[in-house]
Design a protein around this nucleic acid. Structure first.
Lengths: 85, 85
DNA sequence: CGGGCTTACGGTGTGCGTAAATATC
DNA sequence: GATATTTACGCACACCGTAAGCCCG
């Protein structure tokens, strides 16, 4: 698990779209897809449901998304504090 | 900033040695050196003092180390919770 | 059909380890 | 002089984007 993967996952969750998420992070949609797949593979859990055409979160995805946002916030805070040094 | 870099930095800080840190993470010492250098370059701050022969932390290094440990703990907690899903 | 996700493929670039250079004690 | 970090070098591997395939509305 790396921050980069979580950034991609959260972007997809928020945009409800791999394509939009990719545009937001200046990456291709396939890169987004692979990042999420990697997380799903690592945890052995599906994070985003493909049942419907929309990229909706599974219950596990919801859980991870919530925790991931906190972690990313904390990481951003660290970067900010260090840059001020 | 990525978790991998922080893991390397914290390992170096705790072992007070690039060589030992590398062994602990099953990587070469040069990889450790580069990871720390990347962080120093990103923040524009020296994190580990090379004045003496020992790899001691600078004040900024201390600060980052403390915050990084918390972040890594949180990341580990997330991984743990997700693996239990 | 149309839009969007996934997968395959090829190429580029990053990042690793080995090994040499440098520095410190 | 020995131990430890930095840097150079060459190479393999991972990752990205393009594009084709596929699925669902």
């Amino acid at each position: 698990m790396e921050l980069e993967q979580l950034r991609a996952f959260v972007a997809v969750a928020e945009e409800k779209s791999y394509t939009k998420a990719g545009e937001r992070l200046y990456m291709s949609h396939s890169t987004m897809s692979r990042a999420v797949s990697a997380l799903e593979h690592e945890f052995g859990v599906r994070l985003i449901s493909r049942d419907n055409h929309v990229a909706g979160l599974t219950p596990e995805g919801e859980k991870l998304c919530e925790m991931a946002k906190k972690l990313l916030d904390m990481a951003a805070e660290i970067e900010e504090k260090m840059h001020l040094s």
